[in-house]
Simulated scan of single mutants.
Amino acid sequence: MNTRIAALAALFLAAPALAEAPAMTVMPSPGCGCCHAWADLARAEGYDVSIRETDVAALKDDLGITPGHRSCHTALVGGYVLEGHVPFDAVARLLAAQPAIAGLAVPGMPSGSPGMGDDPDARYDVIAFGGTAGAGEVFHEAGR
């Protein structure tokens, strides 16, 4: 994993994640309601969510999230970066598989994604980014 990402993750995750409630830090865009809706859904999924207000544009730059992968919020969990409205089944798969990537992104704000309408039939791709294993490839196809 990128040492820059590991260092930033250490800053935001003060306590080790527990199996029952993995620690997740969500950095929302200022004034964005859907960011908080996604964080609420993460809590409902069993994550121990904390919200950190920060300069999200600078954070995305520091984490190496390219403009084509960006969305409204960024989260850190289990040493990985989540960009945007990543569905929680993809997060669970990521944490279980522990691939050599920096994280997952749902570019933009697709209608029906978690926090954007929560439609289980919504179709959009979850893209792996950073690292060496499968970066730039579709990690998960929501609604398919």
Rank of each mutant, 00 (worst) to 15 (best):
V91W: 01
V126E: 00
H73M: 07
A105Y: 00
S50Q: 15
A37S: 13
F139T: 01
A100E: 15
I101D: 08
Y47W: 09
L13P: 01
A21V: 06
H85G: 10
M1K: 13
L104P: 01
G115T: 01
Y80N: 02
C35S: 09
P30E: 14
V106W: 00
E20Q: 13
A102R: 09
T66C: 03
A14N: 13
G108Q: 06
A44S: 13
P107F: 07
A44I: 05
A44D: 14
A19R: 12
A7P: 05
M116P: 02
G108Y: 12
L63E: 09
A105P: 02
H73V: 09
D55H: 10
A9F: 11
A57Q: 13
G31S: 07
R93M: 07
R43T: 14
A57K: 14
M109L: 07
M27I: 15
T132E: 15
P107R: 05
A100W: 11
G117S: 05
E53C: 07
K60Q: 14
E83P: 12
G64A: 12
L94E: 05
R123E: 14
S71H: 12
C72G: 13
L63F: 02
E83I: 06
A96M: 04
A100L: 14
A57W: 10
G46R: 04
L11P: 03
V91F: 00
T66N: 04
C32N: 04
S29W: 12
E53V: 11
